[in-house]
Design a protein around this nucleic acid. Structure first.
Lengths: 212, 212
DNA sequence: GTCTATACCAGGATAGAC
DNA sequence: GTCTATCCTGGTATAGAC
């Protein structure tokens, strides 16, 4: 029964692919993307180098696959939920929602976001890739800021720059913070970032300096 | 006259060292630290690999030398100017001074700051190096924030976290922004960042939403 | 101190059997 | 599709002559 054999081969192949992706995730998370060698991944997955190249052209392509997987998952969750651009990011709840969503996604996909960050930083500056990537990642925020600007709200800078600055802070903190995702710490980070982005160092309205 | 010969050799050695450092700066600036190979540096400096290893144990040590050079220059400029910790970062002028100083230093030493950033990001996450480095780089800011906290000002988070968040934004933007240092753009960036950090997205006091 | 030449190795990638 | 074995490159680092 050649069909059965063909089918099981296909299953086996899918397993291999999954095993490689899984192993990569694990290694990226602990050692980072740049320091993980292809042989590390194959070893962790219990497969051979030959098998690796059967599925991916190289480490970078594997990363693209991981990224696609992540984005697919995000899209799936977002599906149906329309996202109007007229959100008011100067409203604390709405800003917190956005910061929280971004942070949570980054944390839940830490291996991938971390790898993408390293990859972004690793290649030549001068290509403008970092700005471009940050710009893309903050597209939603930028649109909301543009909306605010249109309505006459005076932002600290043009929407693109402000959005990129916010993104820069987020992605770098995601890289710097070690505490495991899903914990109490995340709530703190989200609250802190929300307040910082909302009111800055001065705090809401005129806070009493409390000169003791 | 063996003295003369010895002296001129010493000069020649110093020249080589300087040439290597110089070439490295140039290459780091355009291609980045990670993508610059030792052979690239020696080629650009017109020296041999042998000469390189006579002066530095490796690329990382050369970077440390560049860093030391930069810090020396900063110290020299700061010398004499005492820096009391009771600066009030909620005062726009004072905050702007700090942001501007940090930004200017980063820009003027772009090859080095850029290289340090890449090196920081490149090694294993999980070591906590990124947080530590950011923490160190923002020591001054943190102290000012601690001073504010002591006086009862309620910050968006604990001084350390807030300072690190600010640092994360600054260093990453320094990496992302391509525009050459010293120009008009720098003033804009500094102003924007100052306003963002000072008031956040809401802007100073209660800004009219201007519902047209 | 600086050069040329070369040893050395990690890691990426392929060939061919199964 | 997967394996084993191997080739091959780029890049680090050293040896030894000058």
């Amino acid at each position: 029964m050649p069909q059965t054999s063909a089918a099981s081969r296909k299953i086996r192949a899918a397993q291999t692919r999954a095993a490689l992706l899984d192993a990569a995730r694990g290694l990226f998370n602990e050692r980072g993307y740049l320091n993980t060698k292809i042989t590390d991944i194959t070893a962790a997955a219990g497969r051979s180098t030959g098998a690796f190249y059967e599925h991916f052209a190289g480490k970078d392509e594997l990363l693209r696959a991981l990224r696609a997987e992540m984005e697919g998952a995000i899209d799936a969750r977002m599906r149906g939920l329309e996202h109007p651009r007229d959100h008011d990011l100067t409203d604390r709840d709405q800003l917190r929602d956005h910061v929280g969503a971004a942070w949570t996604v980054m944390r839940q996909n830490r291996p991938v976001t971390l790898a993408l960050f390293q990859a972004m930083v690793a290649d030549d500056p001068g290509t403008g890739r970092v700005w471009r990537d940050l710009r893309e990642q903050t597209a939603t925020i930028r649109e909301h800021l543009e909306y605010l600007a249109e309505r006459g709200h005076r932002l600290p800078g043009d929407p693109e720059s402000v959005a990129v600055a916010m993104g820069a802070m987020l992605v770098t903190l995601n890289y710097a913070v070690l505490t495991p995702p899903g914990g109490e710490d995340d709530r703190h980070v989200i609250d802190n970032l929300t307040d910082l982005l909302l009111y800055g160092l001065t705090g809401p309205a005129s806070r009493p300096a409390d000169e003791s």
